[in-house]
């Protein structure tokens, strides 16, 4: 279980770095799916099989399919990839990367300084999750359903193609 955690953690980090550095959105998406799978394995190693299954089904399945559909509808093509290459010069990425690395170093410092508690590999079964989810957290479930409804309506409203605007007059809106 231990080596399962470390190997999949390594894969997760590498594939996530690949997501952020690719120029082709489809390649980035495939690496993102790989990253989500390896995080699901991490969940499994930590004794959370229900969440691991949810990660694969909802994240890697449903949410990534949305991304694939949008990329298919937009179809960026060769021109966009060349532009992407122009945008990714060291002048733009060095500054933010250094700042994020400093934040990460601080985060790791705070975590390492704390006490040595062990993340158990004993399993928390789906039954226990369900009992807690529909017991003390029932209000949260209702709120999540409201949020999803709002997201549905918002996506429908925003997704309608507006009839009046063209790219040229869009500048003046």
């Amino acid at each position: 279980m231990n080596s399962l955690f470390y190997v999949s953690a390594l894969i997760a980090v590498i594939s996530t770095i690949m997501v952020v550095t690719r120029v082709n959105p489809v390649h980035a998406l495939l690496y993102l799916i790989l990253s989500l799978f390896s995080v699901a394995l991490v969940f499994f190693a930590l004794g959370a099989p229900f969440v691991a299954a949810l990660e694969v089904i909802v994240y890697a399945g449903a949410i990534m399919v949305l991304f694939v559909f949008v990329i298919m509808m937009i179809n960026p093509g060769r021109r966009a990839i060349n532009q992407e290459k122009q945008w990714l010069n060291p002048k733009t990425w060095v500054g933010p990367s250094v700042l994020a690395a400093i934040l990460l170093a601080e985060l790791i410092y705070v975590m390492v300084r704390g006490g040595g508690q062990l993340a158990s590999t004993a399993e928390v079964t789906p039954k226990e999750v369900a009992i807690v989810l529909f017991g003390p957290y029932i209000l949260g479930v209702e709120l999540a359903s409201m949020l999803l409804l709002a997201g549905l309506i918002g996506a429908y409203h925003l997704g309608r193609r507006s009839q009046v605007t063209t790219p040229q007059e869009g500048e003046h809106l």
Binding site: M1, N2, F5, Y6, A9, A12, V13, T16, I17, V19, V20, P25, S35, V39, V42, A45, L46, F67, V70, I71, I74, A80, E84, W87, L88, T92, W93, P96, S97, L99, A100, A101, L103, L104, L107, I108, M111, V112, G114, G116, Q117, L118, A119, S120, T121
Partner: peptide, 29 residues
Amino acid sequence: AVPLEHGLILAGILFAIGTAGVLVRRNII
């Protein structure tokens, strides 16, 4: 068992990569 910090450090690394991605990329996707 895996130390708690290692799991949290993995989460921190992934979060930092995501932060850098939001800051660096200009493509909204």
